[in-house]
Design a protein around this nucleic acid. Sequence first.
DNA 1: CAGGGCTGTTAGCGCTCGTTAACCTGATGG
DNA 2: CCATCAGGTTAACGAGCGCTAACAGCCCTG
Lengths: 198, 198
Amino acid sequence: MSTRAAAPTRREQILKEAARLFAERGFHGVGVDEIGAAVGISGPGLYRHFAGKDAMLAELLVGISERLLTGGRYRVAEASGEPAEVLASLIDGHIDFALDDRPLITLHDRELDRLRDEDRKLVRQLQRQYVELWVDVVRQLHPGAPEAEARAAVHAVFGLLNSTPHLGSAHGAGLPGRDAAESLLRRLAHGAFGALSN
Amino acid sequence: MSTRAAAPTRREQILKEAARLFAERGFHGVGVDEIGAAVGISGPGLYRHFAGKDAMLAELLVGISERLLTGGRYRVAEASGEPAEVLASLIDGHIDFALDDRPLITLHDRELDRLRDEDRKLVRQLQRQYVELWVDVVRQLHPGAPEAEARAAVHAVFGLLNSTPHLGSAHGAGLPGRDAAESLLRRLAHGAFGALSN
DNA sequence: CAGGGCTGTTAGCGCTCGTTAACCTGATGG
DNA sequence: CCATCAGGTTAACGAGCGCTAACAGCCCTG
């Protein structure tokens, strides 16, 4: 009846908790019993929902990559043709993602090697397409920059934006509020890309 | 006789290979047999040089943190009082470190939680002091920025500079040469910090 | 030449962990 | 009202891993 999100399914609960635990202690550092306990069932009960521990990680990583790419494509298509505006939209979208799904961001560039070959290839392909989205826009905005440089700059800015996990309460003085973090990251990212012109 | 560095001791060989393997596959993902094989001895022979697998990781992480802090302090003391110049020196030092010791950079913010409480506290303390070095300089350079913002910006720029592992040949088109990477990262970092004034 | 350290080796123990097997229960639908 | 099935449970297996034990060769020193 309400307009709130529907109750999460068991699968979704498991994925969420698994993402958090994997991000905190690493894929190999978390046991299936812990994941089960986090959702109120214990150990082997997970196998009613997933083929195995690997399958959870695979679904998480493929899901992230797909969401990033889909969101990026949407923003590129939707924004005006102005490269500056497209880049700004990509940055905003990535920041939203980084702030809303910190555990996934952590997993995204940390546990990729733990996937089966097939899944890893898929994730890599999705990541590559997402990066290409950015590289194209950056090269339109900075025609002087060689492609390798633009690509490296994109990766570096990803590192900057994905630093949000380190901003959390872990270090005592996190930023006051999500809006401040969003605004700061936006300025830093634009500042970094702006330096490409020099 | 020659002026080259002395032959590395067995301990140093082990630490170097362990760092590489831990960075590639994670602390829990690497077995002692693999580390041994990487230096030509096998498995339990490592225990003649280290108390255990944990001790290797601890020595690596403490070593990184100490080198970063020592190098940072040296640069702060050595540079002229001009905040801009001090920050530039810190950035250059961090870039050198990131480019020369990519595996260590990866471990530095990825495997900290696998340490014994005592070691983790020590590493955290060293990291905090290093960050403080940067925050102090950034605040001198941008007096308008609140401390939390300066600290978050420093962490974000670390994320940017530490993105070097992602620039490697893994993605096909790495930057052509170390100098180009160094120059690019320097420009991006300065660009990001410059955006703090706005 | 005798005797220790070093620095390796291999065998094996003990524990953890992912996974499977076998069983149980409550809801559902013909 | 009974059959089915989704979604749990506990027990247990098999593999892998960190680490120790016991032993062996090399090099130095007295």
